[in-house]
């Protein structure tokens, strides 16, 4: 009786570590396929389109609104202290350090990550991957590696675009609607936002998040149970696991970078 929950725990634990191990092996195989892509940049470009360009719209719109909300909320808080001129600092720091990398990684998981998982999972379910192997084409190199590289490249670009659009969203609300001085907005921002402390760290974050998000996405697809149900479960897992991994890693990275 008492052994049943223990046994269940053991089984779950073994399953978890099994997946973790497979995930790392998979990553090694994927990375091994990356150098050969230099000879075939076309494969990566095609994936940059579906991973990056198609995610751009949601990034632009979300970035704009997040920036505008930051502008409004920041203004309401700062105006009590008579410090509304610092709005630019608040908006830019929030975006560059945190919201840019994190929110764009979450949106990336929802838009591009789930699509990658579904695509690879369906290719597995319809025997396309198996078929490729039989045609002596390694799906790790032909299918997985280009998607991995495209995701890894796209993420920092998307995060930067998100941040910039957000800053202009905040500018629009703060300067355009609420009447903060245009010069103060930018000069305070430029005085307080540091290139290496804030911008570089934000970019490093988005590289890490991109790596993790696209790794989870392609692995879940490749590891999916090859049925419609299996693929839909894998797609859900991609979004959930990426969100957890990104938020958890964000805490760790923030503590390392800004924790002093």
């Amino acid at each position: 009786m008492i052994l049943d929950p223990l046994q269940l725990l053991g089984r779950k634990g073994l399953g978890f570590f099994g997946r973790l191990g497979r995930g790392h092996l998979f990553l090694m195989q994927t990375l091994a396929g990356v150098p050969a892509l230099v000879l075939r940049p076309g494969l990566v470009i095609k994936q940059l389109y579906s991973v990056g360009v198609l995610t751009l719209l949601i990034i632009l719109v979300s970035g704009l609104f997040v920036g505008m909300v930051l502008g409004l909320q920041g203004y309401n808080t700062l105006v009590d202290f008579g410090a509304e001129e610092s709005l630019g600092v608040v908006v830019a720091l929030s975006l560059v350090r945190e919201l840019g990398p994190v929110v764009s990684a979450l949106l990336f998981a929802g838009r591009a990550g789930s699509a990658l998982t579904a695509e690879i999972g369906l290719m597995k379910a319809t025997e396309q991957l198996s078929g490729m192997e039989m045609m002596a084409v390694d799906p790790m190199r032909r299918i997985v590696a280009p998607r991995f590289v495209a995701g890894f490249i796209s993420m920092p670009l998307l995060a930067a675009i998100f941040s910039i659009v957000g800053v202009y969203g905040g500018y629009f609300v703060g300067v355009g609607l609420l009447g903060i001085d245009d010069g103060a907005f930018w000069s305070q921002m430029q005085a307080k936002v540091d290139l290496s402390d804030d911008v570089y760290n934000g970019v490093i974050k988005s590289f890490v998040f991109g790596f993790v998000a696209v790794w989870i996405a392609v692995f879940e697809g490749y590891d999916a149970v090859p049925t419609s149900e299996g693929v839909s479960r894998a797609t859900t897992r991609t979004v959930v696991h990426t969100a957890l991994a990104v938020l958890g890693l964000d805490f760790v990275l923030t503590a390392l970078m800004f924790g002093d």
Binding site: L48, Y49, G52, V53, L56, A92, V96, I153, S154, P156, L157, L158, A160, I161, S163, I164, V165, V167, W186, M189, Q190, A191, K192, V193, D194, L195, D198, V199, G202, V203
Partner: peptide
């Protein structure tokens, strides 16, 4: 897309930071 991303990174460096 890549050009826009690069431009955004450049602007983060030039316009937003110091």
């Amino acid at each position: 897309f890549v050009a826009a991303g690069m431009a955004a990174l450049f602007m983060l460096a030039m316009q937003v930071s110091n």
